[in-house]
Amino acid sequence: MSRRSFIVGGAGLAALLGIGGIAKYAGVSSLLRPPGGQDEKRFIALCLRCQKCREVCPNGCIMPSKTEDGFVNARTPKMNFKLGWCDFCAEAYKGVPQCVKVCPSQALKLPDGATATSIKIGVAVIDKDSCLGWLLKGCRTCVDNCPYDALTLDENNRPVVVENKCNGCGLCEYVCVSLKNASITGRSKDRAIIIKPLN
């Protein structure tokens, strides 16, 4: 091996170690992964960024993460409940989540016999400052839509999340009227109920 290729090889080796280190710690935010990708350490070790899960999602609610989510996360899948919600493929594929089925490296993996009620993508969180229900305007869209009875009304008819029933399917976020076309925005920067990652 020539001296030149030794230098090139060494530089490449060092560069990749550097990229690994920087990407690992620079600006990484925790993200809402598709079903079966909740163990973030395992997920990020296995995800090839092949886009298959995003492509096959019948509801189109998976999007590629942005560089702003951390360079290490760029192009990995995350849930976007503005575009759709996750019914765990109940309607289109009889409850077999396609993202999990197609993942070639099993970065998305569910235990055997996992169902919509046992999988947890994240948990819904209400922004009490912008939620119309909490502003006592009587809005109960999320409560009426939740398929898992994970939203109830308190004594003042304000929506409350029942955390152990919520599986983070995202329907409440999807239907929330806040920050939608032609809806009042006020102080809100996002929908008034959004799904947050578990960790």
Binding site: L16, L17, I19, G20, G21, A23, K41, I44, A45
Partner: peptide
């Protein structure tokens, strides 16, 4: 080596 140390496929990023 970078993959082993940092726990994700590093080269895939670039």
């Amino acid at each position: 080596a970078s993959t082993a140390i940092f726990g994700f496929p590093v080269f895939c990023l670039v």
